[in-house]
Design a protein around this nucleic acid. Structure first.
Lengths: 168, 168
DNA sequence: CTTGCTGCAAAAGTTTTGCACACGT
DNA sequence: ACGTGTGCAAAACTTTTGCAGCAAG
């Protein structure tokens, strides 16, 4: 495989350095600083596959003996959002869920409330919807979220045991 | 167009009675009771146009001299969700937003984070997406949420005053 | 009557903030 | 050096829950 700049969707490893500098540049532009804590948090975010939560990051960084406070995690997530490196995924209203989004095509999420499963699926075609909906009203499109709720096979089998519904 | 039972979307007034009995029937089926508080909350929900929050209901019912506690509102909203009379609209992760959904076609939501505006738009065609996404993975489709984020014209003009971005 | 319901206030869970000190730039 | 950042713990907020008395079926 010959050398290529970064054309197709890069793997995680290929992503780490570019994202690091992108974040750095973003921070500098805002007059903010690139601290070890922020670097560590970005690293932790890059490790994650799919959706994650703030508390999850905190826990994993503690495991890895990295001392970062909850407050710093929340503060940094905010910057990562502004830098468009991560995105909020709206799964439930109780808690924020995030996902690495930099350089990736838009994704939808298939969620099973019973089992808490979250499956990602490609949803780039919905950009057309996004643009049309905005255009029709004179808005500038920014992004979209598409979440499908369903019953996963796992939930369905788990459900078998519980008689409940019976229609009127 | 010959006579039809209740084909088109009914107006709010037409909705009140049916929904009341539907809620009643739902409660009975679950062995729950139809109390004045629950009736009042359902009424308040029917008054709302578009998206609303729990705290909003509480406030408005206080205004109307209806004594209902916060706890009861939350508890009732939960039942209304189960009865499929209202739906959670996922706009941000901080707070739950609800919307009357009974007998209505699926809607999408256009949100401007700057101005807090929320505009509803028809999105029934996305049911096909929902079904396809589920079918491809052996899930049973339940529902979906489609939220588009954008900058509203109002936000754009408000923004004019603030110089900030300038690219690197 | 029996069982569930309400209100209150306290609890729980997530996210934010004030402050004193420490550290990138 | 200056201006931000960090950790900690307390605060802020939304939502849930335990309990004693009350009301629907």
């Amino acid at each position: 495989m010959p050398l290529m700049k970064q054309s197709t969707v890069p793997t995680d490893d290929q992503l780490i350095l570019p994202l690091c500098s992108i974040f750095r540049r973003f921070l500098k532009k805002q007059g903010l600083k690139f601290t070890p804590e922020r670097a560590m948090i970005l690293d932790a975010v890059l490790e994650k596959e799919g959706v994650f939560e703030a508390e999850e990051l905190l826990y994993e960084m503690r495991e890895a003996k990295h001392r970062v406070s909850k407050a710093t995690i929340y503060r940094t997530l905010k910057h990562l959002l502004e830098a468009n490196i991560i995105t909020e995924v709206l799964i439930d209203s109780k808690q924020a869920h995030y996902e690495l989004s930099f350089g990736r095509k838009p994704k939808g999420h298939l969620v099973c409330p019973e089992t808490q499963q979250v499956i990602e699926f490609p949803a780039d075609e919905l950009n057309e919807w996004r643009d049309r909906v905005c255009a029709e009203r004179g808005w500038d499109p920014v992004s979209f979220r598409f979440v499908v709720y369903g019953v996963s096979p796992e939930a369905r089998s788990a459900q078998s045991g519980e008689a409940e519904d019976g229609d009127a």
